[in-house]
Amino acid sequence: MKRSWSDVALSVWGVLVFLFLFAPIIVIIVSAFNTGRLLVAWDGFGFDGFIALLAKPAIRDAVWVSVQTGAIAALVATVLGTLAGIAMARHPGKWVFWFIGLLLLVSVTPEIVDAVALLPWLVFLGQDLGLALFSDGVVRLVVGHSLFATAVVSYIVRARLVGLDAQLEEASSDLYAKPLTTFRRVTLPLAMPAVLAGFLLSFTLSLDNTVIAAFVQVSGTTPWPVYVLSALRSGLRPEIASVSTIMLVLTLVALGLVAFVLRRAGDSATQIARTMTGN
């Protein structure tokens, strides 16, 4: 069968848009191997940028701060979000409406508003109330990064459990399991794929968070994206692209794991895509 011109046009458009989507990423990956002094000007091929990760303590520290806060923020968001998601799915009531309203509010508020609001708030908690904890750089970053991630984990866990029948839990309590045992042995394993996916998503969200991090960070604990943002003013060097390429690979590995976990749990490609965009 001959393909109609509209089908051909659609395919061409599709390919063009995919090229558009990948253009800057390819540029960054290519620039990672630039040996010149400036990111924009190509000089020669080499691995100088990657060596900078080892040679420059500022870059090394920034990456380490990012990974560290990413892991802690993901842990906080996963614990809070999983509990909330289970509550929404298994103990529904009028309260769920209000709670989802709060989560929606968290998701749609522009990041810059969160950022400018958190800065004075953390200063207030840390200095005016004397809670020294909130003057710690890592704590501040974790707080800032965990907000949106908590909402995302809550959605994912709720969606997974709503789709599964509560009969198993009822059976468990009929067999005289205590509520805590049922939770630990039945509910949590059922929710596990969503919990793992939520953890990894929170980790990557935190790794990428720039706006909130730029406001709440304390000098000394600068995460990687904020380092890049400040490099923007002082001149971008190829090492920025090199480290970003490494971070991209890290993110893609984490996301590949998410897809793998969800696939094993029986989700279709479309469902995986929905979960991974948080809706």
Partner: peptide, 8 residues
């Protein structure tokens, strides 16, 4: 009913 959602 919402006890588990209190921390979040």
């Amino acid at each position: 009913r919402f006890a588990l959602a209190i921390p979040a």
